[in-house]
């Protein structure tokens, strides 16, 4: 069949559908340029561009996660991100499946298109899901109320307690403030998961979230 004959098979009506549909597809592509704040991805999905190119939104990583930390992203987190996996550290945290699968993340294994991709001998410390940030208005520790939950639970020793000088007894733990050591934090989310702020109710005035939260960092390229 020649090209002319082929196109003559398209009636005017279906030509409108064809042209319109193809145009809409190209138009939808430009949604990529809508600015969106980066969101935390499961381990292996840290290169955002290649992640978004390969993710099928099949939900398998979310379903298999033994910690239930993977959740589907909402429209509010970016049009392109809807239905893609993101991390909700209020539900759980990422132990890289240490408990469930001897340290090999199940989500990365189940991903059919390798949108989540880790090097075989990866080290959890090097897979940066995000970085924890302390909210100094809400953090009980920072407000010198004696809380150091995050410091106690962090598996990577990425939180240090700063002893305030001139504020009484050197051994008094009430005079310590938590700091995140950025180089050591990989955003596993255990601190956010265990932070007592907003766990049952607001502990500090105005708090609407945990006092330590993990935020995604953008990494471009390999």
């Amino acid at each position: 069949m020649g090209a002319a004959e082929e196109s003559s098979a398209l009636s005017r009506r279906s030509f409108a559908f064809a042209a319109g549909g193809a145009a809409v597809m190209l138009g939808l592509g430009t949604l990529k340029f809508v600015p969106t704040r980066p969101i935390c991805r499961p381990p292996g999905g840290q290169d955002e561009d290649s992640f978004l190119g390969a993710c099928l939104r099949c939900e398998r990583c979310r379903e298999i996660c033994p910690q239930n930390v993977i959740v589907p992203a909402h429209l509010e987190q970016g049009i392109l991100n809807v239905r893609t996996p993101t991390m909700n550290f209020k539900e759980g945290w990422c132990d890289f499946c240490e408990e469930a699968n001897a340290g090999i993340p199940l989500c990365e294994g189940v991903c059919p298109t390798k949108a989540l991709r880790l090097v075989p001998d990866f080290k959890p410390e090097e897979v940066v899901i995000g970085k924890a940030v302390i909210n100094r208005n809400w953090c009980l520790g920072w407000l010198l109320k004696g809380c150091k939950k995050c410091f106690e639970v962090c598996p990577y020793e990425a939180i240090e307690m700063e002893q305030l000088e001139g504020l009484g007894n050197y051994n008094n733990s009430d005079y310590q403030r938590p700091h995140v050591i950025e180089d050591k934090c990989n955003g596993c989310g255990l601190c956010e998961n265990r932070c007592p702020s907003m766990m049952n109710s607001s502990l500090t005035e105005g708090a609407t979230d945990r006092a330590i939260t993990v935020h995604a960092v953008t990494i471009q390229g390999d």
């Binding site: 098979a9 279906s14 549909g21």
Partner: peptide
């Protein structure tokens, strides 16, 4: 037979 769907597929 070519129809509009194939063009939409091409566009996508």
């Amino acid at each position: 037979k070519l129809d509009s769907r194939h063009v939409v597929l091409g566009g996508a």
